[in-house]
Design a protein around this nucleic acid. Structure first.
Lengths: 194, 194
DNA sequence: CGTCTATTTGAATGTACTCAAAAGCGGTGG
DNA sequence: CCACCGCTTTTGAGTACATTCAAATAGACG
């Protein structure tokens, strides 16, 4: 049990007093997951916003044909959840599953509300975090529209080398919105080019 | 000058005292734009978060080939801005332009910060607004991956009939990530089907 | 070493794009 | 009132990017 990485993450964004840190620590849950375990399942209510201490998760959606679409990955110092489900406490559209053994800090809905009350500046912190997530999400929409599959792959590889290295290629393909076969062809094409 | 729609929008989300309403009113700017005018231009710093009282705006991006990609529309009771630019006060990636004569309520960066200080629960309100925007953005990514152009169009038409009716079709096409020609073909196909 | 999963390769196909031209439509001026 | 202009939409032919399906190959792990 080590939630220090959470404080290290918060520190540059916001100052917390020792009491506030203690309160925060008392209202979150540290939990280990094994590779393959689900943090959230489609149809369940997403009970937690999660901060990743170590490991890696994927968030994905199963469409009506059973096709899996990876929406996001999360690694050390990232947040994950099905936010739509969490904020309205309604059934989740997405699954969050661990791709490695993973350590998470869980913020339950009730405790997060309580923390917002007791430490109002957390409201500010989370506003800023979500603002950045929203901006990143919009940028991804733009990339999906304006870049070819090849360029989206190169962008991903360049931006998130530490993710590309540790997850299977078919998940990268799904994240990029292409088939695993086509990503394979893109890679072999890139290899011959140089 | 009528900012009542803003208060009507806020009321179901949060209670404001008369003093708070007055303070808020004193720290925002009401402004009319003509059809075609820019609210934000690519390269400028986005000075305001904008609440739409009336009219309609498009947010778009010009890629390296000069191709326009519509990222979002905003109509009555929606928010618009280049949030990435606004939150970090750096040059904007996107343009926001009025598609009709438009009335906006402008929140400047400084005044919004001041309002957050004086009315901390506004921090909560904006957090919740951005959370919902983020969720919507993620859902759009999922739709772009899992639906065909035809189904994306049908979804858009169904969800936002009041937008589809009042804007030219080539902008709808751009928003959906397809060419205007292809959207035209989709529509004629739908017409023959029934 | 064998099994299971992930990746690669190839051929046929499909969805959406490009380019070019024609048709529709709204406003303006002769 | 009609003719013309600019802009939007439609139509068609040819093309490109990405998919599907099937089979072969490579890698990981017990």
């Amino acid at each position: 049990m080590n939630i220090q990485p959470l404080f290290d993450y918060i520190k540059p964004l916001m100052d917390l007093t020792a009491e506030e840190e203690a309160l925060l620590a008392s209202k979150v849950t540290y939990r280990k997951y094994l590779k393959g375990q689900y943090v959230v399942q489609q149809g369940d209510i997403c009970k937690y916003e999660c901060f990743v201490i170590s490991g890696c998760t994927k968030t994905f959606y199963l469409d009506t044909e059973g096709q899996e679409h990876v929406i996001m990955f999360a690694i050390e110092n990232w947040w994950t959840a099905d936010m739509g489900s969490f904020i309205s406490q309604t059934p989740a559209d997405y699954n969050v599953q661990c791709l490695e053994n993973t350590e998470l800090i869980l913020f339950s809905y009730e405790n997060l509300e309580l923390l917002y009350k007791k430490i109002p500046k957390l409201e500010r912190l989370f506003r800023q975090i979500v603002e950045r997530a929203f901006v990143a999400s919009q940028k991804r929409i733009v990339r999906n529209f304006s870049l070819s599959a090849k360029d989206r792959y190169l962008y991903f590889k360049n931006q998130y080398p530490q993710i590309e290295e540790r997850i299977p290629q078919y998940l990268v393909a799904s994240f990029l919105g292409i088939t695993k076969e086509f990503l394979s062809k893109i890679k072999s094409q890139l290899a011959t080019e140089n």
